[in-house]
Amino acid sequence: MPIDVGKFLKSPEYEIKITTYRDIFQVEALERDRFGEEYRKLSACIMMGRNDLKKMGLKAGDRVRVSNNCGSVVVEVKETKREEPGGLAFMVNSPWSNALVSGDTGGKGIPEFKNINAKVSLVKDEVTTLESLIGIFRK
């Protein structure tokens, strides 16, 4: 039986800059039920322009691991509806984006919520759950 080499190969990783934003539908879902499926669906995602997606061999609906030295989350890929200059991805402000924001504020108390450096790679894993983001804080 031939060995499925692809199984052992790691998908390539791409460096990406991420900025965060607010979305009225996600805020609406947050008001209603921050533990609900709707909020997760609207939060646990990363948006990229068509050219960036092409460059990385990704498409809308794929799941990617977004990670840096602050944390790592699996989220769904979405394509922005607008033309983007490229090189910048977008995540709506949420516990998922906050898993990637550096806590180092240079002593100033304002984290870089809108300026995240991370690596993105295609995965088959499930989207990170809110429960797993709270998990380590339980006493």
Binding site: N98, A99, S102, G103, P111, I136, F137, K139
Partner: peptide
């Protein structure tokens, strides 16, 4: 929910 996880481990 609203702060960076890497800054708030003390909450535990």
């Amino acid at each position: 929910s609203s702060l960076p996880r890497s800054a708030i481990s003390h909450l535990a």
